[in-house]
Amino acid sequence: MRLETKDVVVSLSRKDIVKQVSVQVRENEFVGLLGPNGSGKTTLLKSIYRVLRPSAGYISIDGTDMRQLHVKDTAKRMGVVSQFNNLAFDFTVEEMVLMGRAPHKKAFSQDTEEDYRIAREALEKVDMLDFRDRSFMTLSGGEKQRILLARTLAQQVEMLVLDEPTNHLDIKYQIQIMDVVKSLGIGVLAALHDLNLTLMYCTYVYVLKDGRIVADGPTEDVITEDLIRRVYEVDCSVERHPKSGKLHVTFFSNLQED
């Protein structure tokens, strides 16, 4: 599946937050979306997963304008892990993950053994199978985040849209979740804060600033000391790590050390 936005403009309270942004995620491509706070990453993603409506431009899946597709059809093909909101009602972890099967279900169809198997496999992948009978609300932020990923895995989609999926997670699970996502071998569009994680997993990145794309290209070409200074306004050095062979960003404090 190929996801494409073309000159998308999204306005909130009459202010343009996303300004004529065109991005493209090809099949099996892990694409990162970078940018400082307030640069419009989340807003762009929300318009892609249909919570916000673009005021101009269009978003397409395999060349079909998304407005012509029912939300149920997009839900069968595109899964979303967004920044976590509190719930008003409780479910068990397993019920929560089974909800990921919803787009594939008709009104009357029962949850089959197949659905349970898919849900359990998803829970296994995020290392949460032992929590299946727990109440979702009693989980920690990081555990909730992993359950939501499991729910999206149970959706069995061709494309993932992730909004800072590693928020709330300690480093072990940051790497675990990114590994899980990468190993699915499907298209991914992920808004990320951590440049080193981006360098580890993304093959292509778009950099947003003030609602516009200021740079895009293969990850290692785009993430440079100069770009980080321009976009994030911090000093750093980007060097190839001797062991991993990947580029690595080291940031410098603004405080003068004696």
Binding site: K46, Y49, R50, V51, H70, V71, K72, D73, T74, A75, K76, M78, G79, V80, S82, N85, L87, A88, F89, F91, M96, M99, G100, A102, P103, K105, A107, F108, Q155
Partner: peptide, 23 residues
């Protein structure tokens, strides 16, 4: 009775409901 599944999805919040295919 025909809406029970959709109602379950609604409880997950606006965004989750939409991304799980509920209009």
């Amino acid at each position: 009775i025909t809406q029970l599944r959709t109602m379950n999805t609604l409880l997950l919040g606006d965004e989750a409901a939409i991304t799980l295919g509920v209009d």
